[in-house]
Write a protein that binds this DNA or RNA. Structure first.
Length: 307
DNA sequence: GCCATTTGACCCCG
DNA sequence: CGGGGTCAAATGGC
């Protein structure tokens, strides 16, 4: 967030300033509430919301300044889309030796270029993530875990996130969000419903329906894969949940059905890993007014700001 | 049996 | 060439 972004119009500066202030205050609040896992978690969410909003706003402004044109493709989405990748493309060339370049056409995202990085103590953000990889990172003590939206194929949701435990603060995680959720996850809604219960629950949050994992408090390794299965789509059939008008928060019917089976997760693994597939809580409606900053297609209603 | 996680291999980019 | 991101077979829980 370079404050030297000269052309930033007043409204933008104003918003950013307020956001930063809010984030700052939230951070302070977190210190005061560190005794309460629940409260701490909520503050995490608040901080995350601020971060995301600022990032989104920042990008939107940059794009606008760049010249209404497209050009600004900061990252070249990993699009292997059609190339029978996930569908039937089994790999297994290693053994044989015939390195079938199944990914020849796949383009990798340029580094972790764009994405909103935030430091969190809790990893559940209300979204359903599925871990697809983990890597030891060169200058880091902890590995980085890679997640994609559970509905990546279901609903073509491009959201991804990378989680890595901070080197200096073992209790915190550096979470990078890449892409936006374009899916409509039932679990999220259910979660929204649950949060209330969780909040008042002193049990640490681990509840029947809502698998809330509360980190922070216990010194226990937060990284342990407390697999929270998500209320993923019950079957191979993808439900027609996609919102059409894109507008509005996707919170309507609250389903109470959580994951049928799933779960799993090999129990054996050595090192730590900042992972945890989350599945509950609220979706970002908390920020109320913030919702209008983000749109389902990376299109921001700047008009409202530029006035 | 289904599905999420684990983990090593593969591949692209700097 | 090495690091980092992704894939997919294997593994294991429910």
């Amino acid at each position: 967030m370079s404050s030297s972004m000269a052309p930033a119009p007043p409204p933008y500066a104003q918003v950013m300033e307020d956001m930063e202030k809010g984030q700052e205050l939230a951070a302070k609040l977190q210190v005061l509430l560190r005794d309460s896992p629940d409260a701490s978690h909520i503050v995490d969410q608040i901080i995350l919301s601020f971060a995301r909003t600022m990032s989104a706003l920042d990008k939107a402004v940059l794009a606008a300044i760049a010249g209404a044109g497209e050009g600004s493709e900061v990252q070249s989405e990993v699009t292997c889309a059609g190339v029978g990748s996930s569908a039937g493309g089994k790999r297994k060339a290693a053994a044989g030796g015939a390195a079938a370049d199944r990914r020849a056409n796949c383009r990798r995202r340029t580094q972790q270029s764009s994405g909103e990085t935030v430091i969190l103590k809790n990893l559940d953000d209300g979204q359903a993530w599925r871990k697809y990889g983990q890597k030891e990172i060169q200058n880091s003590k902890h590995p980085k875990a890679y997640f994609r939206c559970t509905h990546k194929y279901d609903q073509h949701c491009a959201a991804q996130r990378q989680v890595q435990r901070c080197d200096d603060d073992e209790a915190s995680f550096r979470v990078t969000y890449i892409g936006k959720h374009t899916c409509r996850d039932p679990a999220t809604n259910a979660a929204t419903h649950q949060i209330a219960a969780c909040a008042g629950d002193d049990d640490g949050g681990l509840h029947a329906g809502s698998r809330l994992i509360s980190f922070g408090a216990g010194a226990a390794d937060p990284t342990a894969s407390t697999t929270t299965t998500t209320g993923t789509a019950p079957g191979p059939m993808l439900q027609p949940l996609k919102v059409e008008s894109g507008v509005g928060c996707d919170q309507e019917e609250v389903l109470s059905s959580l994951t049928p089976g799933g779960g799993g997760g090999a129990g054996a693994f050595g090192p730590d890993q900042g992972d945890v597939t989350s599945s509950l809580h609220w979706s970002y409606d908390g920020g109320a007014g913030m919702e209008f900053f983000r749109d389902d297609d990376g299109v921001f209603d700047l008009d409202d700001l530029w006035v």
